[in-house]
Amino acid sequence: HFTSQQLQELEATFQRNRYPDMSTREEIAVWTNLTEARVRVWFKNRRAKWR
């Protein structure tokens, strides 16, 4: 589960860029205190939901 702060950060990034690269995902991981893998999976799932 994600905190509302984490989701806000993830959503804001998603609005700007639906396909963040590795370095962007790592930055998000640092800001949100999540692993890069969790961030990558979140984006994958979010893109699926967005379609």
Rank of each mutant, 00 (worst) to 15 (best):
H1S: 12
Y19K: 04
E26I: 14
A12N: 10
E26V: 14
K44T: 09
H1P: 14
E27C: 10
R18C: 08
E9T: 15
E27L: 15
I28T: 02
K44C: 07
V30F: 13
Y19L: 03
Q5D: 09
P20H: 05
F14E: 02
V41A: 15
R40S: 07
R38G: 09
E36N: 03
D21Y: 02
T3E: 04
R18S: 06
E27R: 13
E26M: 15
P20V: 02
V41R: 15
R18W: 06
A12T: 08
Q5M: 12
E11A: 02
A12F: 09
A29W: 03
H1G: 12
L10Y: 04
N17R: 03
F14K: 01
I28C: 03
W42N: 01
N17D: 08
H1L: 09
A29N: 01
L34F: 02
R51S: 09
M22R: 15
F43Q: 00
R51I: 13
D21Q: 06
W31L: 15
R46S: 03
S4F: 13
Q6R: 03
E36L: 05
Q6T: 05
A12G: 07
A48R: 15
T24C: 12
W50C: 09
L7T: 07
W50R: 05
R51F: 14
Q15G: 07
F43P: 00
A37L: 15
A29L: 04
R18N: 06
S23N: 11
T13W: 15
R40K: 08
Q5E: 13
N45H: 13
F14P: 02
L10V: 00
F43I: 01
S4W: 13
R25V: 08
E27W: 09
F14N: 05
E11R: 03
V30S: 12
Q8G: 08
R38V: 15
W31V: 14
T32K: 01
N17E: 06
S4M: 11
L10P: 00
A29D: 02
T3P: 02
T24D: 08
A48D: 10
E27F: 11
K44Y: 13
V39H: 00
R16C: 09
L34K: 04
T3V: 03
Q5C: 10
E26F: 12
K49A: 10
Y19M: 04
E26Y: 11
R25H: 02
N17C: 10
K44E: 10
T13M: 15
H1N: 11
A12R: 13
S4V: 13
T32Y: 07
Q8Y: 11
A12Y: 09
F2V: 07
N45M: 14
R38W: 10
N17V: 09
L7V: 09
Y19H: 07
N33C: 07
L7N: 07
W50S: 07
R47W: 04
A48K: 14
R47N: 06
N33H: 10
M22A: 11
W50I: 08
R25Y: 07
W50M: 09
E26P: 02
F2A: 03
L10R: 00
Q8V: 10
Q15I: 09
S4G: 07
R18T: 05
V39E: 00
V41G: 10
A37Y: 12
V39P: 00
T3M: 04
E26S: 10
L10M: 06
L34T: 14
D21C: 07
Y19A: 03
R46G: 02
N33E: 08
E11S: 01
A29E: 00
D21E: 04
E36Q: 05
Q15C: 09
L34V: 07
D21F: 02
R51P: 08
E9W: 15
E11G: 01
A29I: 03
H1F: 11
N45Q: 14
N45T: 09
A48Q: 09
K44N: 07
V39A: 02
E9C: 14
T35G: 03
M22W: 11
I28E: 01
P20L: 02
R16S: 11
L10G: 00
A12H: 09
T32C: 09
E36I: 04
S23I: 12
A48L: 08
S4Y: 13
L10I: 01
A37S: 11
V30P: 01
I28H: 00
L34A: 08
F2S: 02
V41S: 12
N45R: 13
R16D: 07
L10D: 00
R46C: 02
T3N: 08
F2G: 02
N33S: 08
T35S: 10
Q6M: 06
N17S: 06
E9K: 15
A29Q: 02
A37N: 09
A37C: 08
V30L: 14
N17W: 08
M22F: 13
E9Q: 15
L10W: 04
Q8A: 14
R16Y: 09
T3W: 04
T13K: 09
L7D: 05
T13A: 15
I28K: 01
R47H: 04
R47E: 03
R40T: 06
N33I: 05
E36T: 05
F2L: 14
V39Q: 00
F14W: 05
E9H: 13
R51Q: 13
E11C: 07
T3S: 09
F43N: 00
R46A: 06
R18H: 14
Q6E: 03
V30T: 12
N33W: 05
E36W: 04
P20G: 02
E11M: 04
K49I: 15
T35A: 05
R25D: 02
A48I: 11
L7M: 08
L34E: 01
R46M: 06
V30Q: 13
R25S: 02
V30I: 14
Q5A: 12
Q15N: 09
R38K: 15
R16E: 10
T3G: 03
R18P: 12
Q8S: 11
K44V: 10
E36V: 05
R38F: 13
F43Y: 06
T32Q: 06
Y19Q: 05
D21G: 07
A37M: 14
R16F: 11
W31P: 01
L34H: 04
E36P: 07
A37G: 08
F14V: 03
W31M: 15
V41Y: 11
N17G: 05
R47I: 06
L7E: 11
T24Q: 14
K44A: 11
W42I: 01
W42K: 00
W31I: 15
Q8T: 10
D21T: 08
T13H: 15
R25P: 01
A29M: 03
T13V: 15
P20T: 00
N17I: 10
T32D: 01
A37D: 12
A37P: 10
A37T: 10
E27V: 10
L34D: 03
P20W: 05
K49N: 08
A37V: 13
R40Y: 08
F2D: 02
T35F: 04
I28L: 13
S4L: 12
F14I: 01
S4R: 14
E11N: 04
T24K: 07
R38E: 15
A12D: 10
Q5H: 12
D21P: 06
E9P: 01
R47S: 02
V30H: 11
N17Q: 06
W50N: 06
R16G: 07
W42C: 04
R16I: 13
P20Q: 02
R46F: 04
A12Q: 10
Q15T: 09
R46Q: 06
T24W: 06
E9M: 15
T13C: 12
